[in-house]
Nucleic acid binder design. Structure first.
Lengths: 171, 171
DNA sequence: CGAATATTGTACAACTTTTAACAAACCGGG
DNA sequence: CCCGGTTTGTTAAAAGTTGTACAATATTCG
């Protein structure tokens, strides 16, 4: 039942080829817990968005656009903001466009470019769904930590996020 | 650039419909950091497995099987262990089988059932890839925390993992 | 026993994501 | 102005995922 992605191989090699030490017990259970929480939380949040006919990716697009100036964003910027490939975003926006949540709009300054615009329906959907989603996030995650834990974990995670962000794109 | 999935809507409704409070600033940045780290780490680890011609899901299967008694596991158990649907696992094992990493084997006690068996090639692959993967996990994640942070985060995450595990399956 | 019910794994169809190739537009230097 | 190189976004095809239905067992219990 345990999902351990970094266990030392049962056939441990000679000590002499020491290069990268295996994870200690403490490291391992932490790493596993992180993986498990990420995966299951994703699953659960997606599940609780289903009644609204939204996938978690759709919701993310709605949020990002709803916070953008004029509720619109260039495709490339949106792809970057949501950590998706341009191709994937293009497909996704096509889907959301036929759902009426979003609209592609020409970009005045640059004739190659397009804006992804939140429609009124998209905005209203966002308003309607957000409270439920926040409830999910609280119930399954945020409310399960003390304020001290939240601060501590943020302090710990922030530099990691920055590191990983820095890797994006290069390779 | 910020990916904030739970921001209060800019059009905040009347205070009277208070039910679920929005995330506080501290909660929000933590939540965002968690999301970002999860996503980017997944991406990066997958990226660093590519040279080995393995997806992250393939690797997970290899690990779980390599730790199982006789290096094999019933399809359903494997699906549960890796948090996948049976359908998805079936496809995945088919792929890994044609890659020679795994082998389907009849199950003596239960004629409906099948074992997914790690092949010698699968085992060797595992041995070869694991050190690189551990290095990735360390470099991009584990080594970026102090031992105290690791302990604290594990203490915080473990009950959440348990909660989420409990939701699996039922609605 | 034997009928109803569960479980196991696959197969098909619909959908999403990835990869690679591409057309169109921009940009900078000669 | 024009040529190469770059950026923008889409597209087609391949690969992967999901949901549902299904056949083949097992299991339960009257």
């Amino acid at each position: 039942m345990e999902t351990n992605l970094t266990e030392a191989p049962a056939v441990s090699a000679s000590e002499s080829e020491a290069e990268t030490p295996w994870l200690t017990a403490a490291e391992q259970r932490f790493w596993r817990a992180h993986l498990e929480v990420s995966k299951l939380l994703d699953y659960q949040l997606g599940r609780e968005l289903q009644p609204h006919n939204l996938a978690i990716n759709d919701y993310e697009i709605l949020v990002v656009l709803s916070e953008a100036p004029d509720r619109r964003m260039r495709m490339t910027d949106l792809a970057t903001a949501t950590l998706q490939s341009k191709s994937r975003l293009s497909h996704q926006i096509t889907r959301m466009e036929s759902a009426g949540l979003v609209l592609r709009q020409e970009c005045p300054g640059d004739r190659r470019g397009l804006y992804a615009n939140l429609t009124d329906l998209g905005w209203e959907t966002m308003q309607k769904v957000a409270p439920d989603h926040v409830r999910s996030v609280r119930q399954h995650f945020v409310d399960r930590f003390t304020p001290e834990q939240i601060d501590a974990m943020y302090q710990a995670l922030a530099p990691v996020a920055e590191h990983l962000r820095g890797l994006r794109g290069r390779g």
